[in-house]
């Protein structure tokens, strides 16, 4: 089965790196993966999204109209993309910034105050890791340990950011568990 996960939010929220970390973890697990960014003449604060395809089989089309899952980090992306999600998919809503629901009763809605959790840990920038970890804990799309390895791979050379990211991952896991 092919999984498509869409990460969407503002530029600067770490949308593209969340997707990249998930794609890396899935690749290390032996899956086929494709990571597609939205790219445009945008800057911090503009819209940003990316799509991660994960499959046991060769991924042909890198284009899909209806992804299976959505991680929505802001309200415009939830409104825009929630109607597209396939039935039985997961929609993770960043409830720190989004006060509305997905309006869908055929999907699994997961509300996590990722900004507040990240702020309590000491750095609001780790909100994307909280969201990613919560999504992985709920969906089991990759083994959680493999996600941690990919977070380490991504942040090990980034000026001491790793310990906080690991804490953010643990907090996200707790928030995401069913």
């Amino acid at each position: 089965m092919q999984h498509e996960v869409m990460f969407a939010g503002f530029g600067g929220q770490g949308i593209l790196s969340s997707g990249k970390i998930l794609a890396h973890a899935a690749m290390e697990e032996g899956h086929q993966v494709v990571w597609i960014p939205s790219y445009g003449p945008e800057m911090r604060g503009g819209t940003a999204y990316c799509m991660v395809f994960i499959s046991r089989k060769v991924i042909n089309s890198p284009v899909v109209r209806n992804p299976l899952h959505l991680v929505a980090m802001n309200r415009p992306s939830l409104k825009k993309f929630a109607p597209l999600i396939k039935p039985k998919g997961i929609i993770l809503i960043n409830s720190s910034l989004i006060k509305i629901g997905s309006g869908r009763d055929d999907i699994e809605e997961l509300r996590v105050p990722v900004n507040e959790i990240a702020k309590d840990l000491g750095d609001p920038k780790s909100a994307n890791i909280v969201a990613l970890a919560a999504f992985v804990a709920r969906s089991n799309i990759v083994a959680f340990d493999n996600l941690l390895k990919s977070i380490e791979h991504e942040f090990i050379n980034k000026n001491g950011a790793l310990p906080l990211c690991m804490k953010a991952a643990e907090a996200g896991r707790k928030a995401g568990l069913p």
């Binding site: 990249k20 794609a23 690749m27 086929q32 993966v33 494709v34 990571w35 597609i36 790219y39 890198p62």
Partner: peptide
């Protein structure tokens, strides 16, 4: 553009 922008193993 997609070949340039996409990531794959």
């Amino acid at each position: 553009g997609l070949i340039g922008q996409m990531m794959e193993p």
